[in-house]
Simulated scan of single mutants.
Amino acid sequence: MKINKEEWLKVPNLLSYFRLVLIPIFSYTYVQAESVQDYFLATGILFLSGLTDALDGIIARRFNQITVLGKVLDPIADKLTQLAVAGVLMIRWPIIRYLFILFIVKEMSIFLISYFLLRKGLMMNGAKWFGKIGTIVFYGCMFILVSMPEMSSSNVLTVVIITSFFQVVAFLGYLSVLYRMFAGTK
């Protein structure tokens, strides 16, 4: 896997760098929030992150700017953003820790299996539909929780269950794909 110098400044990669910069800004803003306006600002930062995530993929495909660096950088920015959002939400709602743990187990398992496949010269080609749905549901639910800091515990539990369900579906889907790759049946 070779990264060319020209890849570093492609627009989709610049958007991924921007998303990485937004992570500590979002985290600080949310943790320090005291008023409705503060939570609204944190919600806006999260929305901007999601918008740049969507734009980097659209621009990469539309303008033929798909790069090796982007294939690595985009999912890293996604996962770090998701970890940060779930991490700061745990401060307000401890029940989020179960979703956080599920997310860590899912991502670490997929990473480790992918690493062993890569050592065998095999690599999954991009995100799958179930992973994309899991990510959309995750962001949607986290967006709701960030924007509604006074949500009741029962509603938070409902959001966590919905998000967890789609995380498990994505996890099982990826395990199936990775197993077939490992078994050589694709």
Rank of each mutant, 00 (worst) to 15 (best):
K2M: 12
I3E: 10
N4Q: 14
K5A: 15
W8Y: 15
K10G: 03
K10Q: 14
Y17R: 10
F18A: 12
F18C: 07
R19C: 02
F26Y: 04
S27I: 10
Y28K: 11
T29A: 15
Y30S: 10
V31M: 15
V31W: 13
Q32F: 14
Q32T: 14
A33K: 10
E34P: 09
Y39S: 07
L41M: 15
A42L: 08
I45D: 07
F47L: 14
F47H: 07
F47S: 05
F47G: 01
G50M: 05
G50K: 01
L51K: 07
D53I: 04
A54T: 08
L55I: 00
L55W: 00
D56Q: 04
G57W: 01
G57Q: 00
I59L: 03
A60K: 02
R62D: 05
R62T: 10
N64I: 04
Q65C: 12
Q65I: 07
T67S: 15
T67A: 12
V68K: 12
V68D: 13
L69C: 06
L69V: 09
V72R: 13
V72S: 13
L73C: 11
D74N: 10
P75F: 10
I76P: 11
D78H: 06
K79N: 04
L80P: 09
L80N: 04
T81E: 05
L83Y: 04
L83Q: 02
A86I: 10
G87Y: 00
G87H: 05
M90N: 04
I91C: 01
R92W: 09
R92F: 04
I95T: 10
I95M: 13
I96D: 01
R97Q: 13
R97K: 12
Y98L: 08
L99S: 07
I101M: 09
L102K: 01
F103C: 00
I104E: 03
E107L: 08
M108S: 12
S109I: 06
L112T: 07
S114Y: 00
Y115N: 03
L118M: 13
M124L: 08
A127Q: 05
W129I: 11
F130R: 07
I133C: 07
G134L: 01
T135M: 01
I136W: 00
Y139G: 00
Y139A: 02
Y139K: 00
G140W: 00
G140L: 03
V146Q: 00
S147F: 09
M148Y: 09
P149W: 06
E150Y: 11
E150N: 14
E150P: 10
S152D: 12
S153V: 13
S154C: 05
N155Y: 11
V156S: 02
T158P: 01
I161F: 08
I162L: 04
I162W: 03
I162F: 05
I162T: 08
V168M: 09
G173L: 09
S176D: 15
V177I: 14
R180W: 08
R180E: 14
M181V: 10
F182Y: 15
A183W: 03
K186G: 13
K186F: 14
K186D: 14
K186M: 14
